[in-house]
């Protein structure tokens, strides 16, 4: 742990860093603020995203500021930073953790509603991507074309998950709370707070 982080330890007002450790993540306070990650980062090149700013606010305990921001939704989950970081801080896992905490406080709904279609597919069919997703402008012809294309290629019909497997999956969706969450996102009941564009 570097000196600055030690000095600031007393101000950590949330359990985030302990949580990070539970995920097996190299603790983000090992960050030396060297900037190697920012130089490599595609999100930093294309938006206001700067991981060092985020980690500083985490350390200062500015939780609401971090969790309510669009910043944490910019990461590409590409792990380029981790491969360059001398302390091997696993930033993308840490960002995932922040996104999860943001959702739990009601943020991120607008983004999740764009992403939720794969989860809906999973719940209904056991797969995330359907033949109809091939062309979302025209799902019906996309489905037909995909079935025909597989036939032309000499492949077995499109993958369908067996009823026995669907039964098991439904248990998983219930027990993990996944079905409830997906329904909440789709109906707009959860998460419901808008995110802040300024950081």
């Amino acid at each position: 742990m570097n000196k600055v982080s030690v000095l600031l330890t007393s101000k950590w007002s949330w359990k985030l860093l302990e949580e990070a450790e539970r995920w097996g993540i190299q603790r983000p306070e090992e960050c030396l603020s060297c900037g190697a990650c920012v130089g490599a980062c595609p999100a930093a090149r294309t938006s206001s995203y700067n991981f060092r700013k985020i980690i500083r606010d985490v350390i200062l305990g500015n939780e609401e500021k971090v969790l309510s921001s669009r910043e944490i939704w910019y990461c590409f989950y590409c792990f380029y930073c981790t491969s360059k970081c001398p302390s091997r801080v696993e930033i993308p896992y840490f960002i995932m953790r922040l996104r999860r905490m943001a959702m739990e406080r009601g943020y991120g709904g607008d983004i999740l509603r764009i992403l939720v279609y794969t989860s809906s597919n999973l719940i209904e069919h056991g797969v995330s991507v359907l033949p109809s997703d091939y062309d979302r402008m025209n799902p019906i012809s996309a489905e037909e074309n995909m079935v025909k294309l597989r036939e032309k290629l000499g492949l077995p019909p499109v993958m369908r998950v067996s009823e026995k497997a669907m039964e098991e999956l439904r248990t998983i969706f219930e027990e993990t709370g996944f079905r409830k969450e997906v329904e909440g996102i789709r109906s707009g009941k959860w998460p419901f707070k808008g995110i802040s564009e300024k950081y």
Binding site: W23, Y77, M96, R97, R99, R100, M103, L112, L115, V116, T118, S119, L122, S128, V129, T176, F178, E181, V182
Partner: peptide, 9 residues
């Protein structure tokens, strides 16, 4: 895809 979107392990 579900882990990527919902961040639920």
């Amino acid at each position: 895809p579900e882990f990527g979107a919902l961040a639920t392990p």
